[in-house]
């Protein structure tokens, strides 16, 4: 069972940021449980094999104020993928800071190392939708991004983060994450 965590404050944004991830998981024939972070129980976290934290809209940054509700992540040890706002959550939990930078639309990003099925050295057009980004936390490695981290991974744990939205042009990345 895969746990999909929504960080959207507006109900209608669920269809835009969470459902596309659900659809990829359904197409892969996998089961999932989708919940807002405010509704998570200890049992939800314990009973799932991996977690995807979805992004949210440009204007929605409430989740950062609620970072205490994500502290379970430090002891989870199983695979986690944070997308956009979800990556900011991962980084913040592991001690990094959030800064301002707006990127909207398709941007070309070069991958420094292999990352969830994308080969080192390759360039991909990725879809950005953010007003903020997270600086590199300790014990994480930057795998894509020039001026700011675009794809990161924990040095010892299967914890991944992408600032872009792979559900738009890199569905293969999410499929690859499901295989871990």
């Amino acid at each position: 069972m895969i746990l999909i965590i929504s960080i959207c404050m507006e109900k209608l944004h669920y269809l835009e940021f969470v459902k596309p991830i659900e659809d990829i998981i359904i197409n892969e024939g996998r089961k999932f449980l989708a919940k807002h972070y405010n509704e998570l129980t200890e049992e939800d976290i314990k009973s799932t094999k991996k977690i995807i934290i979805c992004g949210t809209s440009l204007k929605d940054n409430e989740f950062i104020k609620d970072i205490k509700k994500f502290q379970w992540m430090k002891e989870y040890e199983k695979p986690i993928l944070g997308i956009c706002g979800g990556m900011q959550v991962v980084c913040k939990v592991f001690g990094s800071k959030i800064s301002k930078k707006t990127e909207i639309g398709l941007f070309k990003e070069k991958f420094i190392k292999d990352f969830l099925g994308v080969k080192a050295g390759s360039e991909e057009y990725v879809y950005h939708l953010h007003n903020f980004f997270a600086k590199m936390p300790k014990n994480f490695e930057k795998l894509a991004g020039k001026s700011i981290p675009q794809a990161i991974k924990h040095k010892h744990l299967p914890i991944y983060g992408v600032l872009f939205h792979p559900e738009v042009r890199q569905k293969k990345m999410i499929k690859e994450f499901l295989k871990i």
Binding site: E10, L15, K59, G105
Partner: peptide
Amino acid sequence: SVYQSSRIQNICNDLKIECFNPLWQKN
């Protein structure tokens, strides 16, 4: 359409209002 949606997202962001795309990526 990333072309259409990113342009509307930009306008909404400038005007500080929400942008909702409930059919985004729908089969």
